[in-house]
């Protein structure tokens, strides 16, 4: 768990509590004929130097949020509402040139299946050089030097700049991608399922690496994954997404001790434990709603163990009224009628 330590000269120490990214009311829609509301009103704040986890399953919209922050949502997707500010500056309206500067320098991304993002016919060093020269005027020699530095930073032998991607193992390719993402010293790195395709041992190594780098360099991380157990270990704050919305958001410790939203609890209980008694788990029956259909009431209600017609009043609210995010404890927000009623 990262603890904010004010070491002299540590980048970011002076701006610990500064908000880097402030997303308000983000709406992203895909398609024209049958529009899918992939992201339906999200608020998300990322502060300098913190690791924010965004958890959810397929189709919940988490990758779309990442694309939106980098303004790389591709047609037929488009941002239809909300604002995204970086250090107070609105980026949704930025021109091409400014966006180009913003991307990678301020915010960079490690993509899902990043191993395939490397060009198989170019050497690793060349890909670094290409990337750096796209953003700054720098000679090939200097760029290669920097590439070697970065490889060393992520624990790869610097001589590997001359290797082709297929000569590296999966874990090493992942580190190369991470190194590239750090090349321009961004303040925020978005990582979309950076370890999903890796073996558990390599995954552990990469996670360790990310944590070490983050401590050393002080950048913020938006860690997107479906593996909540990873986030509970690694993140400072965690937001849980379901069907295009954030349903719970809290510091990791609070979530570990007392997750409130039934979906979060369902997720946590979907991880069979390695120790302790072997009990039968329930998982979460059913599947997420079709976001092309208009949504009424709580989107999780059809799968929620607490949505019972017998509790007439509560059930009515669950099926007709949209639950809003409310603070139930300092820094802990939940969007759930039942939790609200218990307050």
């Amino acid at each position: 768990m990262t603890v904010a330590v004010d070491l002299p000269g540590t980048p970011g120490s002076a701006r610990e509590s500064e908000t880097l990214i402030d997303v308000r009311g983000l709406h992203v829609v895909y398609g024209v004929a049958r529009p899918v509301h992939a992201v339906d009103g999200i608020d998300l704040a990322i502060r300098a130097g913190e690791i924010v986890g965004l958890a959810g399953e397929s189709g919940c919209g988490k990758t779309t949020v990442a694309s939106a922050i980098l303004q790389i949502v591709r047609p037929p997707g488009r941002i239809t509402g909300g604002s995204i500010r970086f250090r107070g500056q609105e980026i949704t309206g930025l021109g091409k040139e400014e966006l180009r500067k913003f991307r990678w320098r301020n915010v960079s991304m490690v993509f899902q299946s990043a191993m395939n993002a490397l060009n198989p016919v170019l050497r690793v060093g060349t890909q670094f050089v290409d990337m750096m020269q796209a953003h700054e005027r720098v000679s090939r020699g200097k760029a290669l030097d920097r590439a070697r530095e970065l490889l060393e930073l992520v624990g790869i032998d610097p001589r590997r700049v001359d290797s082709y991607p297929h000569q590296l193992s999966g874990g090493m390719r992942q580190r190369v991608i991470i190194a590239m993402a750090l090349a321009l010293e961004p303040e925020l790195v978005i990582m979309d399922e950076p370890t999903t395709a890796l073996d558990v041992v390599i995954q552990r190594e990469i996670l360790q690496q990310i944590q070490d780098l983050q401590r050393e360099r002080g950048f913020a991380v938006l860690f997107i994954t479906h593996d909540l157990s990873l986030l509970l270990e690694v993140a400072d704050r965690i937001a849980i997404m379901y069907a295009g919305e954030i349903v719970e958001s809290a510091p990791a410790a609070a979530l570990r001790e007392r997750a409130q939203h039934p979906y979060t609890n369902g997720l946590i209980e979907s991880f069979p434990p390695l120790t302790g008694p072997r009990l039968k788990l329930a998982g979460i029956p059913g599947s997420p709603p079709d976001l092309a259909e208009p949504q009424v009431g709580c989107r999780f209600a059809p799968r929620c163990p607490y949505a019972k017609p017998e509790d007439a009043y509560l059930y009515f609210r669950q099926t007709n009224e949209h639950p809003e995010l409310r603070e139930v404890a300092p820094g802990h927000l939940v969007a759930c009628h039942r939790v609200e009623a218990a307050q």
Partner: peptide, 9 residues
Amino acid sequence: DVSIRIGIL
């Protein structure tokens, strides 16, 4: 997906 795995198991 994580929540589906338990069902299969």
